[in-house]
Amino acid sequence: MMEGLKFLLVFVVLALASSFASASDPSPLQDFCVAMKETDGVFVNGKFCKDPEQVTEKDFFFAGLNVPRDISSPVGSNVTAVNVAQIPGLNTLGISLVRIDYAPHGGLNPPHTHPRATEILLVVEGTLYVGFLTSNLAKGGNRLITKVLNPGDVFVFPVGLIHFQLNVGKTNAVAFASLSSQNPGVITIANAVFGADPPMNPNVLTKAFHLDKKLVEYLQKQIWTDNNN
């Protein structure tokens, strides 16, 4: 009886450890599950699957990622996403891709997080200053880890952590990144905090950021643009 209980306990612990260790979307149980629009049904962590007999090559294809994007936004960058919304065949496969274009002399992909994905970035043009913030360390505080990247360099941003990229060169910069989710999500910190809808109580932001209330209210009135397409 005791041996049976020990075995059950070990099994439960291993199962829990396995579930906690998962850092990407769950593994699929079929070759593919091409996403389809459905209006009648329960939506649970993904999308409904198209009949495999009706799947075509178009469900796995996206064109034009080689074309430079408009970088005239206020932050001087443009993120072109290729996730399950653009390629239905990515549904359940736990991966997606983005192209990021940066304007010279300070084009910025602002501090943001991907709540559901680790990101691996490859620079193909230009020079980028990149970095991320750790979560709270044992002794308090958040450590900043940064690196200057050149063409051919690769950098990893761990899942959920705040990170950024800044063009420190005199020419346009381009990078491609892969993310460990079909739909990684993005939370741009400044946009989310000061551009929330409905607006956050200014008293919260005044105290959290050590800012004058009038400055907080001014920031909340600004137009917070999104560089993600």
Rank of each mutant, 00 (worst) to 15 (best):
L9P: 03
V10T: 09
F11M: 15
V12H: 08
L14Q: 06
A17G: 09
A21S: 06
A21Y: 03
A21L: 10
S24N: 07
S24M: 05
D25H: 12
P26H: 02
S27V: 11
P28H: 00
L29P: 06
L29W: 10
Q30C: 08
Q30T: 08
K37A: 14
E38V: 04
E38K: 11
G41W: 02
F43N: 08
K47W: 15
C49F: 10
P52F: 15
V55K: 02
T56K: 11
K58S: 14
D59Y: 02
D59I: 06
D59M: 03
A63R: 13
G64W: 02
G64V: 00
P68E: 00
P68T: 05
D70V: 05
D70Y: 14
I71F: 04
I71P: 02
I71N: 00
S73F: 12
S77F: 06
S77L: 01
N78P: 02
T80E: 01
A81R: 11
N83D: 02
I87R: 15
P88I: 01
L90T: 04
L90E: 05
L90F: 11
N91L: 11
S96H: 14
S96L: 04
R99V: 10
I100A: 04
I100L: 01
H105Q: 14
H105T: 09
G106A: 10
G107V: 03
L108Y: 08
H112P: 01
P115E: 14
P115A: 07
R116C: 12
I120T: 10
V123P: 14
L128V: 00
V130I: 07
S135I: 12
L137A: 14
R143E: 14
K147T: 07
L149C: 08
N150M: 12
P151R: 10
P151M: 10
P151Y: 15
D153Q: 05
V156Y: 08
F164V: 04
F164E: 03
Q165F: 04
G169V: 08
V174I: 14
A175D: 11
F176V: 10
A177I: 03
L179P: 01
G185M: 12
T188F: 03
T188A: 01
A192S: 15
V193G: 03
P199S: 07
N201D: 11
V204I: 14
V204W: 05
T206L: 02
F209S: 09
L211Y: 14
D212G: 06
K214C: 07
K214Q: 02
V216D: 01
V216P: 00
Y218D: 12
Y218E: 11
Y218A: 11
K221W: 06
W224E: 05
W224G: 05
N229S: 15
